[in-house]
């Protein structure tokens, strides 16, 4: 009876999926005519280079045109971290009872992770510094750095991600983001206005405030995710 039900459900889902996707003809140009002025996608594609001098159009949309939305996303991540920390955080007096979940790893893994950690951190920093030139950006680079910290946390049992340092990095990054936004509000009348000179297209220092914001976002995401991992890996042993 249950199997028949599952099969009927699968057939229904498949029917509606094919019905929906058959409406979209394969290989159709869904952006529309890019020379039209009213087309939003065409506006971004045609004007990003001249107005912001950023090679990566996606980054220009995420950080510049939709910069306020990105600030909201960062806030959501911050709130998630805060909630997790407030549930799972251990007080200082319990600190000697805290134990890492993971078992001690072999010396091979320890040595290897000591070699790999700087390389992973370098890759993450590269990804968020070049966010306005190549695919990737603050969120991706921050996540890469957090994986490096995860490697260290599971291979060294007494490796501690310093919480005061994490808090400082995160707060400074957030303050930088908001300060840049407020500066735009003061000087040219709208929040997160790109007031700095754009510079030359495809250069590392170009795009005005976009690389600065992405570097701040990268540090913020890295600090938050590292804090989450550190909290999740620490448990109190049963007495």
């Amino acid at each position: 009876m249950r199997k028949v039900f599952v099969i009927i459900l699968l057939i229904l889902v498949g029917y509606f999926l094919t019905n929906t996707f058959s409406l979209i003809t394969f290989g159709e140009n869904r952006i529309g005519n890019t020379s039209e002025e009213k087309n939003v996608a065409a506006y971004y594609l045609n004007n990003t280079k001249e107005k912001t001098s950023v090679a990566n159009v996606v980054t220009a949309i995420v950080v510049n045109y939709r910069g306020f939305d990105t600030l909201g996303e960062v806030t959501v991540l911050f709130l998630a971290t805060t909630g997790l920390g407030s549930i799972l955080f251990r007080r200082k007096e319990d600190e000697d009872q805290i134990e890492r979940i993971s078992k001690p790893s072999s010396s091979l893994v320890q040595t290897g992770s000591r070699i790999l950690f700087p390389l992973i951190a370098l890759l993450g920093i590269y990804v968020f510094i070049h966010g306005h030139l190549t695919p990737g950006g603050g969120f991706q680079g921050g996540a890469i750095i957090a994986t490096g910290f995860l490697l260290m946390l599971i291979s060294y049992k007494n490796f501690k991600a310093g919480h005061t340092m994490l808090i400082w990095v995160e707060s400074l990054a957030g303050i930088t983001f908001v300060t840049i936004g407020l500066w735009g509000l003061l000087t040219s009348g709208s929040f997160l206005e790109n007031t700095l000179p754009g510079g030359e297209l495809n250069n590392l220092i170009s795009g005005g405030i976009i690389p600065i914001i992405y570097i701040a976002v990268g540090f913020k995401v890295a600090a938050e995710l590292t804090g989450v991992l550190d909290i999740l890996l620490n448990i109190k042993p049963k007495k």
Partner: peptide, 9 residues
């Protein structure tokens, strides 16, 4: 470096 290490782990 990474491939043998991960398989060892």
């Amino acid at each position: 470096v990474a491939n043998p290490l991960s398989s060892h782990a």
